[in-house]
């Protein structure tokens, strides 16, 4: 995304949160957005790559659905009198390679039912994932590769 688009988004969020839709407030929001973008300039990669809004929206919807589902699954697991636990950490080979995409994938994995991302290897090729039910790591790997990773590739490539 271009810096101007990001600043506009920040200003929009500012307007929504502060709750007064006036011109001075919009200018203040733009200034605050530009300032915060300037503060983190060294930590993000700004490139002109295209983002597909519809696919991003579908990713957000998937995110919400998985969040609700995972909270439900954990709640049911904890509430059941006899917890059938087979936890473990498995390695997931990454196809996405940009920092931003890895972050997004790690966050999504954490919110999937029963999985929590622990670490990325130093060469950024492997993501270590802790799973509450790790009896079949191969199936878990397949699920992530065909689900979230594919969606992220569709939205940001």
């Amino acid at each position: 995304m271009r810096p101007a688009v990001i600043v506009a988004l920040f200003a929009l969020v500012w307007l929504a949160v502060s709750g007064s839709f006036t011109i001075p407030n919009l200018l203040l929001g733009l200034a605050a957005g530009a300032l915060s973008l300037w503060l983190i300039r060294g930590h993000i990669q700004l490139d002109g790559r295209r983002v597909r809004p519809l696919k991003v929206l579908s990713l957000v919807l998937l995110f919400i659905k998985e969040l609700a589902l995972s909270a439900w699954k954990v709640a049911v697991l904890v509430a059941s009198p006899k917890m059938a636990l087979k936890p473990g950490i498995f390695a997931f080979p990454l196809t996405v390679d940009r920092d931003f995409e890895i972050t997004l994938l790690a966050n999504l994995i954490t919110l999937t039912p029963g999985t929590l991302s622990v670490d990325v290897s130093e060469d950024r090729k492997v993501l270590y994932v802790h799973a509450i039910d790790c009896s079949d790591p191969a199936a878990a790997r397949r699920d992530i590769a065909n689900g979230f990773e594919k969606k992220i590739m569709e939205a940001f490539r």
Partner: peptide, 13 residues
Amino acid sequence: LARVSTVDEMRDS
């Protein structure tokens, strides 16, 4: 990890 855990591929690597 707790005893009941099955694998820890991170520690292996």
